[in-house]
Amino acid sequence: MLAKRIIPCLDVRDGKVVKGVNFEGIREVGDPVECAAEYNKQGADEIVFYDITASHEGRGVMLDVVRETAKRVFVPLTVGGGIKTVDDIRETLRAGADKVSVNSQAVKNPQLIKDGADIFGSQCICVGIDAKKTPAGNWTVYINGGRIDMQLDLLDWVRQIEQLGAGEICLNSIDTDGVKGGFDLPMLKAVVDAVSIPVIASGGAGKLGDFAEAFEKTDCSAALAASLFHFRELTVQQVKDDCRSKGIIVR
């Protein structure tokens, strides 16, 4: 049986780790390679780099970060942010990433998911989603770091993603991101129930029990957090110990 995964995410801008709160007021802290090595030591099951530079020069810096990390960290690496073309996917994988996460560009051009999956395999293609609840009670998909509402129904989108060949979904809730009140369980459950590919919960982890709660109340495969780990409020190991004590299978 597969272990539930605990995934620290490093938001990187111009080669430095930052962490935003609700995508605003970004604070800068630390060297991504060192951070990744530390998370590896703590038992992270996977490490995500999210490049928020998204400029052309920034991409080169990000690839250097991936190359250096891949020399020291021997768990899967995922890289997201600013990936727009099949060539971007190819050079990111060549730099040492195991998966790429496509977000805004996948909404603008869903064919990117299919092309990426056909060429590199579904296992390489994670689709990142930022979504927010509407007054009507459903959720819609946002792009450009949560700034633009695409008026695209979340559940329609995740079903489409699966059909296009995505290997995994990383689901971030704009409502809970940075708030530290726990993952957005209703949204998470709706998505997990709508697709049969693995779903990573993202946005909102604020305390130890939030991770186990996501695994107990939904069938999500993994849970991701950034600032919580980054500001050392919790270690990956503490989270895993808590999950294990509650009978959840973790590595």
């Binding site: 272990a3 099951d45 049969s196």
Partner: peptide
């Protein structure tokens, strides 16, 4: 069964 078998197993 979800295919591919992807992740950590014992």
């Amino acid at each position: 069964l979800i295919i591919p078998h992807m992740g950590w197993n014992k």
